[in-house]
């Protein structure tokens, strides 16, 4: 952000860290991006019964306004460049949730056309198992991501890399 580069670690910047991380934690804006049947569950979580909005999650229709991409479904090799492109357009800091077995590991689609886990093309923060996961599981994944964001810092960090 700028200020921490001049002041270093002191009571002002570390307190600011907490405030900014708290703000980021309660205003995760996911990109509207659905791939398969998990997207139906993701839409359910946005409905009034489960109510994403109370956690500060509001679906944004542009990746340039989004902090989070929920990869909800299997990623085919034809779709992989588009997933990567949406991810690259998101501004830092950004996070990725691999929702469901297919996005996490390929799941039951151990076939020629499916990327075996979206972590092979973009770095993933939270994996949610299930086929598809219940809406409660997605909300639990969001709270896990919030715990991760809470520990974050203002300082410049290198963007996350893909683990190989």
């Amino acid at each position: 952000m700028g200020i921490e580069e001049h002041l270093g670690d002191n009571i002002i910047t570390t307190s600011l860290d907490k405030i900014v991380s708290w703000g980021r934690k309660w205003s995760i804006w996911p990109a509207t991006f659905g791939l398969a049947c998990c997207a139906i569950e993701m839409m359910t979580v946005a409905s009034s019964r489960y109510d994403f909005d109370r956690l500060g999650l509001i679906f944004r229709s542009s990746p340039r306004q989004a902090d989070l991409i929920i990869v909800s479904g299997r990623v085919s090799y034809k779709m992989a460049p588009m997933v990567k492109r949406v991810y690259d357009q998101m501004p830092n800091p950004k996070w990725v949730i691999a929702m469901g077995d297919c996005a996490s590991s390929g799941g039951l689609f151990n076939v020629y056309s499916i990327v075996q886990g979206v972590d092979r093309i973009i770095p993933v923060d939270v994996y949610i198992p299930g086929c598809p996961p219940r809406p409660e599981a997605l909300i639990y994944g969001i709270t896990k991501l919030q715990e991760k964001i809470e520990k974050g810092t203002l300082k410049h960090e290198d963007p996350p890399q893909i683990l190989r």
Partner: peptide, 24 residues
């Protein structure tokens, strides 16, 4: 041609081989 019977089972390109700039 993937649905031919002699197409190798689970033959997949490596993730590095995906042309990310060429969506087709």
């Amino acid at each position: 041609y993937p649905l031919l019977k002699d197409y190798p089972l689970r033959k997949r390109p490596e993730p590095e081989e995906i042309k990310m700039d060429a969506p087709g």
